[in-house]
């Protein structure tokens, strides 16, 4: 118990939690945008792999770090376009298409990596984003090192949450996106293009998923390796449900989840880690996600038209 308390009051623990939460925030917001418009995007896992690869590869080839982020975003949009084309105008199964996109994006990223670097044993490294202390704020004891000594991409993740929240709830565009996710027929009667809005949401959302993946290679690990996304995409889908489809709550969920993740790594080094198998600690995030889903599902406010394709002239 003492060990747990010591972990909770250390600034480095919270700094790690915020860091771990950042890629999840990008990808969760991306998924949230898709689902708010009525499309479940199971391509998330693969799109994150693709973003992790393209972002890293662009920087490896000499682009600046933000150029890498832009490339990742573009690659995510490309796969988003494919997903959106198949699921929105053609109304195909969002489950099957999503899983297909995950497989396609993952395999394409691995294929391209092997093709570009056939003979590497240890993955090449790039110079990742460095911590950027915010003037004045980073000098605050505890909060400074925990919250305000992060990389630029982390600040961007939290900034994005604010922007997504504002756009969704304070602009006509956000209202339109929510409308096509709740009642597409009514939205169409108002003169909104259901197809256009849904496709746009999936394309932009997929771009953010890819940036979440790029965070792993450009800010967290500095190189690309196989299986590095490791289920984070699926966890983000759970986080959207946990956050009741609201950006603010989703960010809170991501930070909470990341705190558990950072906590399990530290707990492994305590006397608990000597007694319990390390696999239990590693499984904890996945088990927690399932538990969170069960608790939240009772009062989830699912977008009413989620997974329901819309076809003009069909009631």
């Amino acid at each position: 118990m003492m060990a747990l308390w010591e972990i909770l009051i250390s600034a480095s623990f919270w700094a790690a939690a915020i860091r771990i939460a950042s890629p999840l925030i990008f990808a969760t917001l991306g998924e949230l945008i898709c689902e708010r418009a009525g499309v479940l995007n199971l391509g998330i896992e693969g799109i994150m792999v693709m973003g992790a690869f393209t972002g890293w590869f662009a920087v490896y080839l000499g682009l600046p770090l933000w150029g890498g982020v832009a490339v990742a975003f573009a690659s995510g949009m490309l796969f988003g376009l494919l997903h959106a084309t198949l699921t929105v105008p053609f109304g195909l199964s969002q489950h099957v298409v999503g899983l297909g996109i995950t497989l396609l994006a993952t395999a394409t990223a691995y294929f391209a990596y092997r093709l570009a670097l056939p003979q590497v044993t240890s993955p090449p490294r790039i110079d990742p984003f460095q911590p950027l202390p915010v003037p004045i704020l980073s000098d605050i004891p505890f909060f400074g090192p925990a919250l305000f000594t992060q990389t630029a991409l982390t600040y961007a993740a939290f900034g994005l949450a604010l922007v997504v929240g504002l756009v969704l709830y304070r602009t006509p565009l956000g209202l339109a996106v929510r409308a096509v996710g709740e009642n597409p027929a009514a939205a169409a009667a108002q003169g909104l293009s259901v197809t256009g809005l849904r496709m746009g949401a999936v394309i932009i959302g997929s771009g953010f998923m890819a940036v979440g993946g790029a965070f792993l290679t450009l800010s967290a690990f500095s190189s690309f390796f196989f299986d590095m996304v490791n289920g984070r995409g699926w966890i983000c889908i759970a986080l959207v449900v946990f956050g009741a489809w609201r950006p603010g709550k989703a960010v809170l969920g991501a930070v909470l989840f990341a705190a558990f993740d950072a906590g399990q790594v530290r707990l492994q080094q305590t006397e608990l880690g000597a007694v319990l198998p390390y696999q239990l600690f590693l499984a904890l995030p996945f088990i927690l996600s399932i538990v969170a889903l069960v608790i939240m599902s009772r009062r989830a406010e699912v977008p009413a038209a989620l997974m329901v394709p819309y076809n003009k002239g069909e009631r």
Partner: peptide, 10 residues
């Protein structure tokens, strides 16, 4: 979908 996926990792 999500629960079966997540359980694969567990």
């Amino acid at each position: 979908v999500v629960t079966t996926l997540l359980f694969n990792f567990v």
